[in-house]
Every structure is written in C-alpha cells, then in structure tokens.
Design a protein around this nucleic acid. Structure first.
Lengths: 343, 343
DNA sequence: TACTCGCCGGAAAGCGCTTACCCACCGCCC
DNA sequence: GGGCGGTGGGTAAGCGCTTTCCGGCGAGTA
C-alpha cells in the first residue's frame, strides 16, 4: 500500500491496459473481471486481475466506459436553489436514490431563471445522463420554448425526464398541493378563523396557484374568506417584505398563510417588527413542514410534505417507467402554536 | 424547430459525425467550430457547421470529449448531508464557482461515514474530475486509511483536492474556528456570563475541537468558566437530546453554546420543553449564523461564518493553485436576544 | 515565373474502454 | 478414436470525440 508506484511512473491514473499488463492477461479479460459482464472468468485469472487492480489503485475511467457502452451512470438534478431547505431535502432524497442505484448525481442550480434552466439542460445533456430531474419551480403559463426544445431533444434521444411538482408535458412526481391547501383551509376555518391573507408567488407558478386554490376552497367551504393574495416569491425575504408593506392593515384575528414555510418565517419576522405577535394577534401558517417550522416560536402550523420521499420517488420513477405511480404523495396538516383555536 | 428530424431518424443523440455530414464538412472542421480550438475556421465553414448543429440540436458528448481530451469538465463535491443548511450553503457557493468556470458539479453524500466517504471518492475518481472538494466533517485523529489511500491515488494521478475546514494533509480552505470561538467567548464574558456549557461533537472532530478551544480561551480569559462539555453531534436532535438529559441541572444564568446553530436550535427546544426560557433563564449561542438563527425567537447569538463564500473559495482554490490564500475567512460574532447582557 | 510561406480543410491515429467474434482446448459420447 | 459442443481467453473493431499531420492553394517575394 505504501509501496512506491510499481507500474511505470506514468502521469495520470492507471488504465485498464496497465492492469492487464500487470496481471499478464488481455484487455478483454481485465475488463470482464473489473467491470462486470455476463461471461465467466476463471478464478485464477480473476484473482490475478483483482490483485493487479488493487495494487495499482485502478479506478475505471467512467467517461471512457460511457463512451464505449453508449450510456452513462449519471443522473442530473436541477434545483432552483440548493441552499433552500426545501430543495435541499428533495436533493437528499434524489441523492439517496441515486446512491442505491449506483449512479452518480450531477446537480445544477437554476436560480429560478428559465433561460438559465434551458442552458443547463443543454449542458447536462452533454453528459448523456440516464435521467434528468427538474425541481425548479416551473411556470404553468407559456412554457419556456427553449427549455421545451432542450427537453424534447433529450427525450427523443432516449433520455427520461421527471419533474417534481406539476410537470408541463413531462412525467412528474407531485404533491397534492390542492388537497393539502384544502385541508389546511378547512382546518383553519375549523379553528375559528374567518379572514385569511395568502402570501404567494407570482400568478402562473403552479405550486403557488394550486396551494392558493386548494386553500381558498377549503377555507371558504368552512365559512372563511381569503381577503387578499399578496404576490411575493418563495424566499424568506419575499414573505417578509410583502407583509412588511401591509402589516398595519392586517386585522387582528386574521391568519396569514405563506406559500411555503420559508415565506411564513419571513411573515412572522415582519409581523414582529410591526409589534404584532404571531400566534396571538395574527395567526400564521405555511406549507412544507421544514425542520425550522417545528422549532419556531410559536411552532408554525403547516402542511407536511414528505420532501425527501418526493425526491426519492422522482429518482426511482425517472429510472424505471414501471415504478411510476401517478398518485401524488399524501400531505398532512400539522397544527402548531402559530394558529391557536379562536375562542 | 418543429420540423421533423431532418437527419436520419437514428435513435440516440446526434453525433458530431451527423453534424459534419449535414454541414458537408469533415469531422475535424466540425469539431474545431463547435468545441473550440486555437485554429481558425473560415467563416463560411463556421456558419455551415453552426447551422447544422442548431438544426440537429447537437450537444457534444462530454464523455467522449473527456475520453479524447483526457480530462473532464467536472468537479466533485462531497458533503455530509445536503439537507443540512450548513452544507447546503457551502454547496451553493461551490455550485456558483463551478458554474462560472463552466464546470459541471457532481455531488455525493457521505452521511458522515468515513467508510462511505472513501468509497465515494473512489467512485468519483472514475469521473476524473478536475478537482474534489471535501466538505464532510473529518476527524483529526487516526485519519481514515482508506480515504487517504483513495485521495493519494487521485492526487498522484494529477487531481486536486481541497478540504473545507481543517484538511488533514490536503490543501484546505478554512474558517477561523478558534478565533471565532475566542471572539464569542470574549463577547459572552463581556456580557457578564460566568458559566458556560458547550454542546459539542465527539472529541477528535476538528471543527468541534477548535470551536471549543477558542471559546474556552476567550471565555476564561474574560473571567468565565466552561463548566461542562456535552458530547452530541452536529444535528438538531443531537443538541436537543444532550440538553434534554441534563436540563435540570443547568443553573440559571448559564450560557449553553452549541457547536453549530443547528445544534443550538435543538438546545433551545430542549430548554423550552423543560420550562427554561432561552435568553431569559438560560442563554444560548451557536456557530455559523444560518438564516434560521436570525428568525429564531429570541434571535440566536452566533458566530457568523460566510459559508457560501467558503464553498466558492474552495472551488476556486481547487481549480487554481495560485488562487489559494491560506488565511482563513474572517468570522464575526453576532449578538442577538438569546444572550442578553446580564445585569 | 518559380519558389516559399502561411492558412486552413481533411485524413487518420489515437483516448480508455466494451464486446462481437474467433479459436484453442477439454471432456464427452458413440 | 474421432467428432462435437461448451468453456473461456484473446483479437480487434468500434464508441464519439480531439488533434497531429499532410497537402492544396493563394499570396508574397526575387
């Protein structure tokens, strides 16, 4: 192990050629031993090759392998922002699935820019990944033409694409945002709330639209009214700024619902800055159930979304068409201190 | 664009061969136009090739390119847990740097398992990445032999490795954990605290050890005493459980310092469950300054660490030895409500 | 006009691997 | 004892690119 390089001291990693020479066998045999094939290799040869590989610290050149085989062992994941816990957890699920399947994971960050997203898909296509998973929030409206073209080129070359969330035209793995919203609306109405302000992303973003729609249905069905929809975004600051601007006119007893927990955290902060006590004066709720929601004070009422599982499923389904089950993952309302029952 | 595939309807992505044929030029010319070379190509030829490529939706096969060139356009990142905001932000910085450099990013999750880490390095080596960035918390003690061997094989084949945090033998980009700890200790002592409990990871984990050492130095220098070091880990639950076990015997007026903000959040939660009010009864502080710390109630006093910048620098320095500057990134104490001045 | 360059397109030899295909060898059966 | 199928190692033809040469051509020089 600590022995000086026993093969020739070439620069660069040892090749299969080196291993074969060292073991005194042909390239074909070395390949068969090290990189698995249907054909058997006699134990004596197998051992020689394995020893040589170990000795030289051989690690197969995956690029060459991919070139020769015509397919790579890579899956690609596009997320809007990897620092956001929402995407972080999805990524964790995808990574787990990829690991289980023996695949490497390439990640790219879209920064929520559809131009960029198209460019990235093009770049990733170059790797000829086994599949591409899209977890950037997509607009339902005029689909980005470039993106669609890239995706089309990829799929028509045999690639598989799965979108997390509502997939415009592609296969998708989703969460029942409408059902979750409805359940949250029903629950809050049941707690006695009658007025709600929804802090959403811009219109046209499916996840946001669905959550609004579901919530509205549930809340109004329970006798409440969504009095205002603020357009912000998916970040903490978006939630903060949106509420900061209108805090004074939010009536006591209103529940402010963020389109995500991250947004709701910003909402809480803004309320506090205006002297409104979240959970007492004004109630707050969100979506996703990120870990932070649990530790917030008061605890944030939210709709639990199994994000990691979502990523995992997306990965599985992207690899195997058969695995796909269309039913969205179930979501569940988690009531916490931010929405106490109203007398 | 919406025209039916004009080349032959082969399966698989169009190759450079296809583009060359379509453009009526040689492979060499097509390559020179599309994948950049020092040599000039006459405008007429250039245009023909570009048109053909556009037409066919050509995207160079990176594997083949890597095979031919003998080097890939990939960097690899190993993190302990991508769902953890600490690593998420580092990853964001690395991703930004990779993007700027036109490189693709492969991510692998170590789950804080050194065995696994070694295996992953081996797998990643197969991609012949331009560099490998290690952001899994490493133990300073008996370095994992396998990992060292893999890393050695990689570097001796020309690869570059950068560790985030204290690097055992490899180049590293770090944060001044000792200085940060010291500053925090000094600040807390200055606020009037005299007793501290430190919730750390197991002994031997450098980041943890350094933070303890620095803090102890600063705090004791200011007249305080670290009365206990709890061994937990880096997760929220680790912090929670550690404090949960000893909450009753933590004296009022003590400051409990978590080895990271995530841990500190767990600490706060545990204190609350035991009826101790963080920031009033018992003070709490952490390290890293993750976004959550800002929104916690009370705000969490912490040591700000520019995590994204850290990742960015790691990437830069991994690509270019010259970029490397050894001085660790500066850290800064951020005092918030969780550590009010003691009358 | 003859000769020398410089420019630039094309042919072809790789890059490290996989995988058809070939063939030597062995044990079997009749 | 000879034909035969099965076993398993080796040979070599790719995979999709890059890059080194080669050579043709037009311009510049004497």
């Amino acid at each position: 192990m600590s022995e000086a390089n026993p093969g020739r001291a070439r620069s660069g990693a040892p090749t299969l050629q080196d291993v074969a020479r060292e073991a005194g066998v042909s390239l074909a045999t070395a390949s068969r031993v090290l990189n698995g094939t249907a054909r058997r290799v006699a134990p004596a040869f197998r051992e020689k090759v394995e020893a040589a590989a170990e000795q030289l610290g051989y690690s197969a050149n995956l690029s060459a392998q991919a070139t020769a085989r015509g397919s790579s062992a890579i899956v690609a994941l596009l997320v809007a922002d990897i620092a956001d816990p929402y995407f972080g957890r999805i990524a964790a699920g995808v990574a787990r699935g990829a690991d289980e399947a023996g695949l490497l994971l390439t990640i790219a960050i879209t920064e929520r820019d559809q131009q960029r997203e198209a460019k990235l898909v093009r770049a990733l296509r170059g790797q000829r990944p086994r599949s591409v998973i899209l977890a950037a929030s997509r607009t339902s409206g005029r689909a980005n033409e470039e993106l669609v073209a890239e995706l089309g080129a990829y799929t028509s070359a045999g690639g598989s694409v799965v979108t997390i969330g509502p997939g415009g035209g592609t296969r998708s793995v989703g969460v029942d945002n409408i059902g979750g919203g409805r359940a949250l609306g029903t629950a809050l109405a049941g707690l006695g709330y009658r007025r709600a302000v929804f802090v959403a992303a811009e219109a046209g973003v499916r996840t946001s639209d669905d959550r609004i729609a579901g919530f509205t249905e549930g809340f109004e069905g329970g006798g409440g009214a969504v009095v205002e929809v603020l357009r912000a975004g998916f970040s903490r600051d978006a939630g903060h700024d949106a509420v900061d601007a209108v805090a004074e006119r939010i009536e006591a007893g209103t529940v402010v619902v963020g389109v995500s927990d991250v947004v709701a955290m910003g909402v809480m902060a803004a309320l506090r800055e205006h002297g409104r006590a979240p959970g007492q004066d004004v109630a707050v709720a969100g979506f996703d159930d990120i870990p932070t929601s649990h530790d917030a004070v008061p605890g944030l009422t939210t709709v639990h979304v199994p994000l990691e599982e979502l990523g995992y499923r997306a990965l599985r389904s992207s690899l195997d068409a058969a695995v796909h089950d269309d039913e969205p993952l179930p979501v569940e309302v988690v009531l916490r201190g931010s929405t106490p029952a109203r007398g």
